[in-house]
Each structure stands twice: as structure tokens, then as C-alpha cells.
Design a binder for these strands. Structure first.
Lengths: 196, 196
DNA sequence: GTCTATACCTGGATAGAC
DNA sequence: GTCTATCCAGGTATAGAC
């Protein structure tokens, strides 16, 4: 298994993704240059094109990978219990996952408009699949009469916006721990759908 | 009141602001060029520099103007009634104002990272002043025992994120009217802070 | 797989005519 | 106040050596 000196394919690929995510989260896609990404990784700009055909594809692959991880992680959860327990599980899962990955979350949310129309559509489909996880819980609770949810699609977006908003200001090592945050948000989510 | 032909100072200024806001909301600050803005207004790129010293200042002035309008509009409201009535008034005001100005709202939220550090700080101060309007209502309600708000700063951010999230998907002429939206959101806000 | 070098283009911003 | 013309820095992407 001899390997040429200076050959780091399995190392450099992930490092490009990671550096690009950090830089794009901080400065925005259009403001980040291929040279900056390359410098962060420690290679020359031209070397990036061994890993991606162009800058747009680099962004899209990054965003898609993030959304697929999110969907996989959600699929691994058990949201089949009573609606209230399922809603709490979803709330805590969503918070934990999103705080764990503040940078890709931020990119996936902020850079939708930087995608080509086809790539945008593909990502929207993934996002909607994730939203459907929460919508299903809300519908079950409404059917059981334990939730008051006149419009599950609207409530889904409202709750996800509330929870995801966390990532714009929460910082580890601040006044509150992640668990304290989840303990503050869960009663708000619960109350927002509680009848009367 | 003779005016030189081709002199449109009072017309062109606002048109630049408006065109820049639309383009930046759609494509992002870094992706929009001075030439694009000029073309939208119907002048040449060089002419923009009669109205702004540089691109960064154009962005900042736009965002600051928006935040000042928001603060002025909030100051003109009466949030001095009983906490629950004040919270409902704030909710409906916030929704109405933000749906009326989807583009500047989007820019003010998404382009914070495109500002220089000094400009960022200035805008953050304005944003915090606005948040304080809601925090004050929440504190009053908590003191009266009509709201359960263990952490007013966190609840403020959670509620504002929920309400502002609307602007990313609401479109006039869609399934729901603005009033229907407000009637869906107010009970969620109320429930999120309702005791037990 | 990576580097150096570079083609080619478009960006922000300015100068000077009108 | 606006236009035309232009400077020059820096962008993406490619070619060819190693």
C-alpha cells in the first residue's frame, strides 16, 4: 500500500469541506474566495479543483451532506410515543443537533439564495422532508386533542424558526448550558400548542 | 426653482436605496455589484458614488435606516396596558411591520456579517434596543404572575425568532392573509409564556 | 495529488468631460 | 448630476511541471 509523498486525498477532502463551512458561515459564500479556502487547508487554490468541479458544487455538496445527516439523525430517533413525549423528544433532538453543528446549520439556512435554481430545489425537498417529521407529531397530537394546532404547516415553521434561532446567539461557555437552554425552550414549545 | 436638466438628486437617492435593498435581499451583499445596482436605477456605476462613499456605507445606511424606522414605529405604539394586552399588541405590531418590509428585514438579518466591526456594533445596539421593548413587557407580566418567563432575555429571542421567521416564507396572495397569520401566531406566543 | 504560473474576467472606485 | 473611460486588485478556473 505504498502511497506517493504529497498524496493526501482522504485527508484533504474533509479538510476542504470543513474549512469552507467555517469560512462561509463567517463571511458568506460570495465573500469567500477559493484562495482563502485553500490557504485555510494549506494547499494552493488550484488543488481544490481535484475535489470539486467548481465553487457552486462545493457549496451544494456541503449543504446537502448536512441536510442528509440531519434526516438520518432524525430517522434514528423514536418519535412514535404519545404526542407530548414525541414533541419533547423532537424539541430536545433538534436543539442538540443544531447546537452541535452551528456552522453547517447557519450555512444551510443563509446560503439558499446562493444556490442555482436546481440545487435550491433539491435542498428544499430535503428541508421539507425534515419539517414533515414535526408536522406528523403535531397532527397526531391535534387528532388526540392534546394539542391545539389549527394549522400544522404554520405551527411547524413557527416552532422550527424559534428553535433554530438559538444557533445565532447561543455560545458554549456562556451564561447557560445546552441542557438549561433545552429546559427553557421545551415549556415554550409545549405551551405554544397547548389547548386553551 | 430652476433645476438643471439631468439633475435628479432627490429622486435618485431613494431609488438607489430601494434597488440595493431588493438586489441584496435576493442575492446577498457580496454577490451584488455596484454596476447591477446602477443598472437597476438607470444610471452608470460611477454616479452611485455621488450618494455613498463606498459599498459598505451603502449597506450600513440601508440597515440603519431600517432599524431606526422599526424603533420609531415601536415607540409610536402603546404597550403600557396590562401585560397580556401589551404582548398581543407587540405581536401584531411586529408581524405587520415585518411583513410590510420583507426585503429590508431580510437584509438587516442576513447581512450582519457583511458589516465592518464598527458598523456591526452600531446595528447590534439598535437591535438590542428593540428587543428590550419586548423584554420589558415580559418582565411586567412575570412580576404580575400572568406570564411564566424564567429567563426574559431568552424568551425574547425565542419569540422574536418565531415571529420574524414568518418573513422567509409568507407571501401575499398565498393560502393565508396577514390577519389570519397574526391570528395563528398570537395564541402560540400567548401559550409560550402562559403559566403551567 | 499538489504546485506554480497564468489566462481571462469582473469587481470597486476614481478622473475628467459635459 | 451624470457619463465615459479607465486603473488596478483580486476573482475563478485551467495547464503543465513535478
Amino acid at each position: 500500500m505504498a502511497r506517493k509523498l504529497g498524496s493526501h486525498s482522504e485527508i484533504t477532502g474533509p479538510r476542504i469541506t470543513s474549512a469552507a463551512t467555517t469560512l462561509i458561515a463567517r463571511h458568506g459564500f460570495a465573500a469567500v474566495t477559493m484562495r482563502q479556502i485553500a490557504a485555510e487547508v494549506g494547499v494552493q487554490a488550484g488543488a481544490l479543483y481535484l475535489y470539486t468541479p467548481d465553487k457552486q458544487t462545493l457549496l451544494f455538496d456541503l449543504m446537502r451532506a448536512h441536510m442528509e445527516e440531519l434526516l438520518d439523525a432524525a430517522a434514528a430517533q423514536d418519535f412514535s410515543g404519545p404526542p407530548e413525549a414525541a414533541l419533547e423528544a423532537f424539541t430536545r433532538f433538534h436543539i442538540a443537533f443544531h447546537l452541535d453543528r452551528a456552522e453547517p446549520v447557519f450555512v444551510a439556512y443563509m446560503e439558499l439564495r446562493s444556490l442555482t435554481p436546481e440545487n435550491f430545489e433539491a435542498l428544499e425537498r430535503l428541508r421539507k422532508r425534515y419539517e414533515e417529521t414535526l408536522t406528523a407529531i403535531l397532527r397526531r397530537g391535534a387528532a388526540d386533542g392534546v394539542f391545539d394546532v389549527p394549522d400544522p404547516a404554520v405551527t411547524t415553521r413557527a416552532l422550527i424558526a424559534m428553535l433554530t434561532g438559538l444557533t445565532t446567539w447561543f455560545r458554549d461557555g456562556g451564561r447557560l448550558t445546552r441542557d438549561e437552554i433545552a429546559d427553557l425552550y421545551w415549556p415554550m414549545v409545549r405551551g405554544a400548542v397547548r389547548p386553551g
